[in-house]
């Protein structure tokens, strides 16, 4: 899983690319938290773009909530956008959208 960020008008776009499972999550977590440390202080909100996520299981729930907590320390709200139909179902049924709304 590759993660890259782009900041535009104080909005941080975090783009995930590839497969998110228990194995790939460790590096993804490290990369996303580095981005948070670099950009959170100058961001009004962060949007996780899932359009390039080719696979995600329940690992994604913990991953997103973990990043939500990280950004929360900087007072930055987190959103998700472009989940696949399967990912959408997982995020919906686990209540992730109550913390991290769809942008």
């Amino acid at each position: 899983m590759r993660i890259c960020a782009e900041q535009r008008d104080n909005v941080l776009y975090v783009r995930l690319n590839g497969e998110m499972d228990e194995y790939s999550a460790a590096l993804a977590r490290r990369d996303a938290d580095r981005l948070a440390e670099t950009y959170a202080a100058t961001s009004e909100r962060a949007i996780f773009d899932l359009s390039k996520v080719s696979f995600m299981d329940s690992t994604g729930i913990g991953f997103l909530i973990g990043r939500y907590k990280k950004f929360q320390r900087y007072g930055v709200p987190v959103y998700v956008t472009n989940p696949s139909a399967g990912t959408d179902r997982i995020l919906e049924m686990s209540g992730v959208y109550t913390l991290i709304p769809k942008a």
């Binding site: 977590r29 299981d57 329940s58 729930i61 913990g62 991953f63 179902r89 997982i90 686990s94």
Partner: peptide, 22 residues
Amino acid sequence: PFYTTLKGDERSGMGFTIMQTF
């Protein structure tokens, strides 16, 4: 749903619920 014995690992406890739903 949401039951996990590995809370510290960012696990959600939703694995079995997903298997049953999908």
